[in-house]
Design a protein around this nucleic acid. Structure first.
Length: 709
DNA sequence: CGGCGTACG
DNA sequence: CGTA
DNA sequence: GCCG
């Protein structure tokens, strides 16, 4: 089980090759999480019943990503040491009469590395020996009973592993010094003993209870347990603690970030400078350019010359046909004009911090149009031909290009330089990057409160922050400066999928967001979970799942956990409220959880330890739970990018008079549901999404071509 | 000159 | 108001 | 800031 890593499909390399045009293909990242994935190995020596042969893999035409089959296909044979090949146990079922475990404290079995058969047999044998047996895998995610157990049997070899497996079961312990007498162990109800399965085999072999001493792997003392496992929120540190913590963490984190992100510290040096905006003066970016009729701007000779070279270039369709909406053109992740786009992104951010929503929209539109342009831009007049780009964009390009025609890396725009140097911009940006702090609040911190650094926020404002803002601050560096490598995103998705499937077999998942659009590194993990049986997606399953993940330590903080939206357009299954119409089919709803995540498996390649402590970076993970009735729209709605999503809604409204949201498509007038996103039989999640897109009258562009910035 | 995605807690 |  |  510690081989999750190698089993993860790092690249989505299993492509579903079909005869679609190239741009419509994408790797299938979703797949059934086979119900038969649990523990399919013919494993334990205790497994009397002969389960032989390799684990059967769930075979679906498109599926590749069954965490289970993947995990179990990675054949690391169970530690061969303990692997006597006694498929014919003399004991079959039932324990010998003189083998009584009556005096043992409540016993439980750690299922890891045990086949279902082995697990089953063990359970039967133990109860036959009158053990006070606690079942470890109640099918419904109820772990209440497990807390009774004090004696665990498992195929475990190291104390660290034992503690990890216990935590997965919701039992939180810290290791106790060796040398605790066994009497003390039995008598102290706070102590947990983990013993190798071999011990029980020995007992069976000798027809009597044997000394456990040689088989003890771990003795631990029960601890508080995790944050939130019982619905309690983890106590956040005080301001003072956080300041210290930040100091200690910063160096390490930034070092690592440089390693991960290629060595650039994204924070700029502080240069005391003039304000970056002066209301009512003419120094704002917008007014810097006194070009009233930019379309008539005279071209320099060199620009004219460059342009002649472009004459034979075939302009892309969206330019020829002036298609304005991002849903009508492909946007690759990288394009020849990325450098200029970055300039526009800086201006867009400055507009964001000025609460200029319309400016944001305008720059987003221009950025996406340029992102779709397949050639290097060489003249401002070419830019004028792109939809969403006009005088201002063109003027910006003109200044930018001519500031250094021969060296792209040296090009700049004066107004943008000033933005980047201004304290106001830099500090507000820093605040804005706190999860839970928007532009308005960032401005308030800077302008009203007068704060100038994160330390100011912590020192002077800690108690005024919302809980999620405190969490956002606590993990500020990890969230903002340590991107998640693609393989780790895949690993997190697979793990969530696996745990979901363990709770209720039959779950499938797909990782959406930037990962699905092909990004090599992600800021967070977005995923859609779905079950073909609608019943299985109800009944607070997401809460159950998140609770389990908390118990096992993966989820360290829950930022948001709720039904029916909250953020975004998550409300599903019933018409938008504005229509005021009841919906017959009952309330199917999309559930969504936003959490902080941390790797817990010491064997994972993403696990980092320092001084015996887990210092793996915390990650932001969003989990969307969709009923089968709207999984197509959910996947489409959660894949993005932002401008694609906005234009999708505009198109649906304009073309059909419908309203799109990730929970479905609705008729405007009647409020009736347009049946588009249901999960059809024999269809995978990607095919389902495609049906929605085509049903809306759109060309299907694969997610890698929806990078609208 | 109005409109620009969108709903929710 | 912040989020996706 | 750009579109209709």
């Amino acid at each position: 089980m510690q081989r999750y890593d190698s089993a993860i499909d790092m690249t989505g390399s299993d492509r579903d090759e079909d005869e679609l045009p190239e741009h419509t293909k994408e790797p299938t990242v979703a797949g059934p999480i086979g119900p038969h994935m649990h523990h399919k190995r013919p494993l334990s020596p205790v497994a009397a019943s002969s389960s032989s042969g390799p684990p059967s893999r769930s075979a679906s035409p498109h599926s590749v990503h069954s965490p289970h089959s993947a995990i179990h296909s990675t054949d690391s044979p169970p530690n061969s040491a303990g692997h006597h090949d006694n498929t014919t146990s003399p004991h079959d079922l039932g324990a010998p009469l003189d083998l009584s475990l009556l005096s043992l404290p409540p016993v439980a079995v750690i299922p890891t590395r045990l086949s279902p058969e082995a697990l089953h047999d063990l359970h039967e044998q133990l109860s036959a020996a009158n053990a006070d047996l606690v079942t470890t895998f109640p099918s419904d995610g109820q772990t209440a009973d497990i807390h009774r157990a004090r004696f665990f049997l498992g195929q475990i070899n190291t104390p660290k592993r034992a503690a990890f497996e216990l935590r997965k079961l919701g039992v939180h312990t810290e290791e106790v010094e060796a040398g605790t007498s066994r009497e003390a162990v039995w008598q102290d109800d706070g102590l947990i003993t983990v013993v190798k399965v071999e011990w029980w085999e020995k007992c069976l072999e000798k027809d009597g209870v044997q000394s456990i001493n040689p088989y003890i792997v771990y003795v631990g003392r029960l601890t508080e347990g995790p944050p939130g496992g019982d619905g309690k929120k983890r106590a956040l540190p005080s301001a003072e603690e956080l300041v210290k913590e930040r100091e200690m963490k910063r160096r390490r984190i930034l070092e690592r970030a440089q390693g991960d992100a290629g060595g650039s510290d994204s924070r700029v040096k502080v240069i005391p400078g003039k304000p970056w905006t002066k209301p009512n003066t003419t120094t704002s970016v917008d007014e810097e350019f006194g070009v009233k009729r930019p379309k008539l701007m005279r071209k320099t000779t060199s620009e004219y010359e460059r342009e002649k070279g472009l004459a034979n270039q075939v302009q892309p369709r969206y330019v020829r046909e002036q298609l304005k909406l991002a849903v009508h053109r492909p946007h690759p992740l990288h394009c020849p004009n990325d450098a200029f786009i970055n300039v526009l992104k800086t201006i867009k951010l400055s507009r964001t911090l000025q609460l200029d929503d319309i400016g944001i929209r305008a720059y987003s539109t221009a950025i996406s149009a340029i992102q779709a342009y397949p050639y290097e831009l060489l003249s401002s007049s070419t830019l004028l031909t792109l939809p969403g780009c006009d005088g201002k964009t063109s003027a910006l390009f003109y200044e930018w290009y001519n500031s250094s025609p021969d060296d792209v890396s040296q090009r700049k725009i004066q107004a943008v330089e000033e933005i980047e140097q201004s304290e106001e911009y830099r500090v507000m940006k820093e605040f804005y990057q706190i999860w839970g702090v928007g532009a308005k609040t960032a401005r308030e911190f800077y302008l009203d409160k007068g704060w100038r650094s994160l330390d100011d926020v912590i020192e002077f404002g800690w108690n005024q922050l919302s809980r999620v803002q405190q969490i956002g601050l606590k993990f500020y560096d990890e969230i903002n400066f340590i991107p998640i490598p693609r393989p780790e995103v895949a690993r997190i998705g697979a793990l969530v999928g696996k745990v979901a499937d363990e709770l209720r077999p039959g779950y499938e998942y797909i990782i959406t967001g930037g990962y699905r659009r092909g990004k090599e590194q992600s800021g967070d993990v977005d995923m859609v979970l779905c079950h073909r049986d609608e019943e299985q997606t109800r009944g607070g399953f997401l809460t159950m799942l998140v609770t389990r993940l908390e118990e096992e330590g993966w989820v360290t903080h829950t930022l948001y956990l709720g039904r029916g939206g909250g953020f975004g357009t998550q409300r599903v299954g019933e018409p938008p409220r504005s229509h005021g119409l009841a919906h017959g089919e009952g309330a199917e709803e999309l559930e969504k959880a936003m959490v902080m995540w941390q790797e817990q498996d010491p064997a994972s390649p993403f696990y980092k330890e320092e001084g015996g402590r887990n210092v793996s970076p915390h990650r932001r993970v969003d989990i969307i739970l969709s009923p089968p009735s709207c999984v197509g729209t959910a996947v489409l709605g959660w894949t993005g990018g932002t401008t694609y999503e906005r234009d999708l809604r505009r198109w649906v409204e304009k073309r059909w008079g419908w309203k799109f949201d990730s929970g479905g498509v609705w008729e405007r007038g009647s409020g009736r549901r347009v049946e588009l996103g249901e999960w059809a039989e024999g269809e995978d999640l990607v095919q389902c999404e495609r049906r929605v897109i085509e049903g809306l009258g759109l060309e299907y562009f694969k997610p890698e071509l929806r990078n609208t910035g």
